[in-house]
């Protein structure tokens, strides 16, 4: 009965929450020697599942065929490690300004996702109760 917004938006909101946790983790480990910053890969997986990716799809017409498009239900935010070098002596590559800006972007993303979710619910409300 419900449209695709009710599947996609909770997934991306979950990913935003996870992203916030990862960014806080990076900030907390700003002074930990040899710590490498973590980041989240979610957008690409979601794009693949929705069929908007640049990646070539493997055509399947049998259940046993290898499928490279993940199902929407299985899309999860993966935590990856950024092992790039930095200018710091202690082997840590956390840049506090970058993390801060990522955190702001993530918070704004979360606000828009929750607004979209509100609208998605309101559309059903309009159908059920009519325009007030």
């Amino acid at each position: 009965m419900f449209d695709i917004n009710f599947k996609v938006l909770p997934l991306s909101m979950d990913a935003s929450v996870k992203n916030h946790q990862v960014i806080s983790q990076n900030m907390a480990n700003f002074s930990t020697p040899n710590y490498k910053r973590k980041y989240i890969s979610f957008d690409d997986e979601l794009k693949k599942a929705l069929g908007n990716s640049d990646q070539l799809k493997l055509k399947t017409n049998n259940q046993k065929h290898i499928n490279n498009t993940p199902y929407l239900e299985n899309v999860q935010a993966k935590i990856l490690e950024d092992d790039s070098k930095s200018l710091r002596n202690d082997g840590n590559n956390v840049d506090i300004d970058t993390e801060n800006s990522l955190m702001i972007q993530n918070a704004l993303n979360y606000s828009s996702q929750s607004r979209l979710m509100t609208y998605a619910i309101q559309r059903y409300d309009t159908v059920l109760r009519g325009v007030k």
Binding site: D95, D97, T98, N100, S101, I104, Q105, L108
Partner: peptide
């Protein structure tokens, strides 16, 4: 707008 934030944070760094 997100690019603005990224550019400004590179300036801060």
């Amino acid at each position: 707008l997100f690019r603005t934030i990224n550019v400004a944070s590179s300036g801060m760094t």
